[in-house]
């Protein structure tokens, strides 16, 4: 028997939700069922204590293993500080071995005072350790101290980072940023120190190798970037502000032969506009990437640029960079058309 044709209703949606935010918003995070569930701060603090205490135990074992004579943690720390030529600091927590900085009271927003620790790069420390091992007269105590410091400092920086995302970052506020810069400064100091020691003849360990792999990826300053590209290309963004990149090129564009046009054509009388830097980089043994660098002082706004062929200058596409949130037009500016402010261009 013929019947009227059935029709389907439109589905609620036709694809999966890919955005992790959906999972964050709706579901519980994965956790080991054997572990009790905690709030993030408590679990972070607990993990922090566990790590630090474990490091103390390991440090003690290292110290004992390197010398027949049992040493107190006080003596070990003092000797280590003296070798480093730094001022011993008195205090109730001086017994922290191998550590020549103030040890903070356990409390407050930075319970381990981790922000003050010298967050040297692991690689540099490893380099120093290997230099010690490879030298004609390895100093066991020095070596033990370095090994221990390697472990502590690796964890220190990571734990600091962990705390910064565990809800304490907002309380640190600007102080957090200052601390980051200070830590960077400490890193530079540490590196200089090692380099000076190298010049003094600490063996042949000059292991300042380039980044692993074929390409040297520089650290990305911390700001999220949203990228929309009409062609498949890795886009590498250095920006201190939230940034949105829109790359519009015809499919199949020969990326090696393109360049991003400067903001103003030569010969115009207008003052140079503030600009971001952008270039197509043909990586050795790798793909072509688009590198975009947004200067720190570039005002929030929308910055369009043309993409042209290197050989002929013929325009083939556009690159638009939106930096930060575009401010509303000043209310003092007389407006002829609309009495209402135009809606701001918001990031999605």
């Amino acid at each position: 028997m013929d019947r009227p044709r059935h029709r389907r209703r439109d589905p609620q949606r036709t694809g999966p939700i890919r955005h992790s935010g959906g999972a964050w918003a709706k579901g519980e995070p994965w956790h080991d069922p054997l572990e009790p569930e905690d709030d993030p701060v408590s679990s972070g603090v607990r993990e922090g204590y566990r790590v630090i205490e474990e490091q103390i135990r390991r440090g003690q074992r290292v110290a004992q293993g390197m010398d027949d004579e049992p040493r107190s943690r006080d003596r070990y720390g003092r000797e280590h500080r003296e070798r480093r030529g730094r001022r011993p600091r008195p205090g109730p927590e001086e017994s922290w071995p191998g550590y020549d900085y103030d040890v903070p009271p356990r409390g407050g927003s930075d319970p381990f005072h981790l922000l003050s620790m010298p967050a040297r790069h692991l690689g540099r420390l490893v380099q120093e350790i290997l230099r010690q091992i490879g030298s004609a007269r390895p100093d066991p105590l020095r070596l033990a101290g370095l090994l221990f410091q390697l472990q502590i400092e690796a964890i220190a920086e990571l734990t600091r980072l962990g705390f910064s995302t565990l809800g304490l970052g907002s309380r640190w506020g600007d102080a957090f940023q200052e601390d980051v810069y200070r830590v960077q400064h400490d890193i530079d100091e540490g590196v200089r120190e090692i380099e000076e020691e190298e010049e003094e003849g600490y063996g042949e360990w000059r292991d300042d190798e380039p980044g692993h792999g074929s390409w040297d990826w520089r650290g990305i300053p911390g700001a999220p970037a949203v990228i929309h590209a009409s062609v498949p290309i890795p886009v590498y963004v250095e920006s201190h502000e939230s940034t949105e990149i829109v790359l519009d090129l015809p499919p199949g564009s020969h990326l090696q032969s393109l360049e991003v046009e400067p903001p103003l054509a030569v010969g115009t009388a207008e003052p140079p506009a503030p600009a971001f830097e952008a270039e197509f980089v043909d990586l050795a043994d790798g793909p072509v990437i688009l590198r975009v660098e947004v200067p720190r002082d570039l005002p929030a706004g929308l910055y369009p640029r043309r993409i042209v062929t290197s050989a002929t200058g013929e325009p083939v596409g556009t690159l638009t960079v939106q930096v930060g949130t575009i401010p509303k037009p000043s209310s003092k500016t007389p407006r002829k058309v609309s009495p209402k402010p135009r809606p701001r261009a918001e990031k999605p």
């Binding site: 964050w24 995070p29 993990e47 962990g162 995302t165 809800g167 980044g211 650290g219 911390g222």
Partner: peptide, 29 residues
């Protein structure tokens, strides 16, 4: 630990870059 924290809250400003740097060090070593 850090990634675990991200499961509850998206990474804070600048964190990804620092983690990448740390990861580079871990990798290199």
């Amino acid at each position: 630990v850090l990634f675990g924290a991200w499961s509850r809250r998206p990474p804070g400003r600048g964190t990804e870059a620092t983690v990448l740097r740390t990861l580079e060090n871990v990798t290199r070593s």
